[in-house]
Amino acid sequence: MKKTRNRKLPGNSQWQWKNLIGLLPFFLFIAFFLVMPSLTLFSGAFQDVDGHFTLANFSFLQNTFALKSYLTSVWVSLITSVIGGVFGFFVAYAITAERAPRWMRNVLTTFSGLAANFGGVPLAFAFIATLGRTGFITALLKGICFNGAGGTTICPFNPYEHGFNLYSVTGLILAYTYFQFPLMVLTITPALEGLKREWSEASANLGSSSSQYWRYVALPVLWPSLLGATILLFGNAFGAYATAQALTGGSIYLVTIMIGQQIRGDVLGNPNEGYALAFGMVVIMSITIFLYVMLQRKTTRWIKS
């Protein structure tokens, strides 16, 4: 279709390229403020201090400290994208269910929009105020005490005496989930709505049970969207910085936190290794976004048919 339209226009290709002039400001902006900064880092990642080409900077991967930061980041992103993905999927299912009350749907989509956009420092504050050492829920749970033998008081519900710690990876996962699952709700709801009622009816008509329908039809149709959305959640968590910084004061070494410290004071002792660290992040994010876009395309092709 594109081609036939081009042919209609006079002068064809030359005429077409001239028209790109109108996009010049946009491309200049992108070039200056996105491409150039990225290239500065990338080229730095492949240079030594004197500007010669080297791959030595990637030896940071042998630096247990830096490698660990990658592993922590990947771990936190993976776990929150899976938890958020599964939970978000069920919530989206709940609001698209045939007989779901209208108000429930409205409340949940509105709050998903809010929570998915609510992150950064305030989110950390909210969790500290709720589940921190003196937080509201912690205090509430701590208050439930019984008189034990010999005049001692037993407070069985103090979470901090049972290995819970908000200022840890666990806390981080809990906080990230707060914006992860709503994002899942927002991204997966259109896909769930794309499941035609006729499919489940045709399936039942052919004798299948509800679980057979989900196993053979609904989930196979949904899986590119599910996977795509989960990957998006992964990227969303992987690039996050502020919540972790505010919640744990930078004591958990995520890659983003490491890069932050590298910007402030070259903790790696080699600026080029910092660039390599950043380059690695961009590579991971590129793969993530690429997979997401590809899966998204696959989905639209199916749903449209």
Binding site: S38, I259, I263, M285
Partner: peptide, 12 residues
């Protein structure tokens, strides 16, 4: 989206 903000600010 591909360039996390922390990387962007680093580059800038």
């Amino acid at each position: 989206f591909v360039v996390p903000v922390i990387v962007l600010v680093f580059g800038l």
